[in-house]
Design a protein around this nucleic acid. Structure first.
Length: 156
DNA sequence: GCCAACGTTGGC
DNA sequence: GCCAACGTTGGC
């Protein structure tokens, strides 16, 4: 089983939105980055778990845990008029993929980006490396376990 | 195939 | 709101 971190802006779609979905399930659409698409296609598996990360907000950080509940499949929002429309993608040859995720829980507190950055054990994490803008990224087993331990502590 | 211009992400 | 860092686009 693999671990991931997936970013979303809470004003657009936050952990509370996911928690409120029927069965806590929603598709993770709107990914328009080839690296992420390839991760969805080649590495995401049912049963993987992911941190839900709030970006572009006052206190960015990890706010919840979810699980992957589908294989990658075509992102239909690319076919429809709207924010995510991409004329170069069509149902016969879909360019973009998405996966379904299911809400598991809120973390007991926000594990802030500042904490993650300050922790030497996480210095290799993609999230804290300078300039990294991927909205979906892998988390190693060690990093995952370490962050769950951080969650148990009170914020510094 | 290079690379400048442009658009987006996302922390601050 | 600013702007650094990056990915993508398109002219050549």
């Amino acid at each position: 089983m693999a671990y991931w971190l997936m970013k979303s802006e809470p004003d657009v779609y936050g952990i509370d939105h996911l928690a409120a979905e029927p069965d806590g399930v929603e598709h993770w659409d709107g990914i328009r980055n080839y690296q992420v698409r390839n991760m969805f296609r080649d590495q995401f598996r049912i049963g993987d778990q992911a941190f839900f990360y709030h970006s572009n907000t006052k206190v960015p950080g990890i706010v919840g845990v979810m699980e992957v509940v589908s294989e990658a499949y075509p992102d239909h929002t690319a076919f429809e008029p709207g924010k995510y429309y991409d004329p170069k993608s069509d149902p016969d040859n879909p360019r973009w993929l998405m996966v379904d995720v299911r809400y598991l829980r809120h973390t007991r507190r926000v594990i802030t980006l500042a904490e993650l950055k300050a922790d030497p054990a996480l210095s290799d994490m993609a999230l804290v490396r300078r300039g990294n803008r991927l909205s979906v990224m892998p988390v190693t087993n060690d990093q995952w376990a370490h962050i769950l331990e951080m969650e148990k502590r009170d914020a510094e």
